[in-house]
């Protein structure tokens, strides 16, 4: 099985790579279009600002490629936000795969939403067989509101999408690669899709 980790200069790809290594997978880190297209599974990480990340995607033409992928794709953190159509972070147009905006948490809350939080209303094979106590690690200041593609919900003052899915595109707001054994189980489920 060929796993590609999109390496476009805006992700902590190393952490995701190490997490996959712990599962016995050696991913290929690349931004080469042909290599990404030919992969069995694609992981699309991201940290930092949505605007800077979109600029990086555009610089390598990945903004055109990613929405056309047909194999299972997993967005992580900012990778998930970039799959939406627009982000309030830098008021930037994103990939438009998921018909949703990305909003800033309301004032008065501690930002970033940082640490371990529950995920509930789980509606995907990604979460099959998780133990009843399942917290995952979040670090983000912007969120995807609940929408028809939401497959997991988290509460931080308001409910937001902890994960979304549309067709072959899956995405998690939390850092599955840093979410302990639970995170590794979720990555394994994605790899088994």
């Amino acid at each position: 099985m060929k796993i590609v980790l999109i390496d476009y200069g805006a992700g902590n790809v190393q952490s995701v790579k190490y997490a996959l290594n712990r599962l016995g997978i050696e991913p290929s880190l690349t931004k080469d279009h042909n290599e990404i297209k030919s992969a069995d599974k694609v992981i699309f990480p991201g940290v930092g600002s949505a605007k800077a990340a979109m600029e990086q995607l555009k610089a390598s033409g990945l903004d055109e490629l990613i929405p056309t992928l047909i194999q299972p794709v997993l967005g992580i953190c900012v990778g998930m936000q970039l799959m939406c159509k627009y982000s309030e972070e830098g008021n930037v147009k994103c990939l438009g795969i998921i018909d949703s905006e990305v909003k800033k948490f309301k004032p008065g809350l501690k930002i970033p939403h940082m640490g371990w939080n529950n995920i509930s209303d789980l509606k995907s094979p990604l979460f099959q067989g998780l133990p009843t106590e399942h917290q995952v690690y979040f670090v983000h200041s912007y969120y995807v509101p609940l929408n028809e593609y939401t497959i997991a919900t988290t509460d931080y003052s308001n409910d937001f999408s902890a994960a979304i899915k549309k067709d072959n595109f899956y995405a998690v707001q939390f850092h599955a690669e840093k979410s302990g054994d639970i995170g590794e189980q979720i990555l394994e489920k994605f790899l088994a899709l």
Binding site: S15, R22, Y137, S179, D181
Partner: peptide, 8 residues
């Protein structure tokens, strides 16, 4: 550390 542990 990064290779072995799965928390931040």
């Amino acid at each position: 550390v990064a290779e072995r542990i799965n928390i931040p």
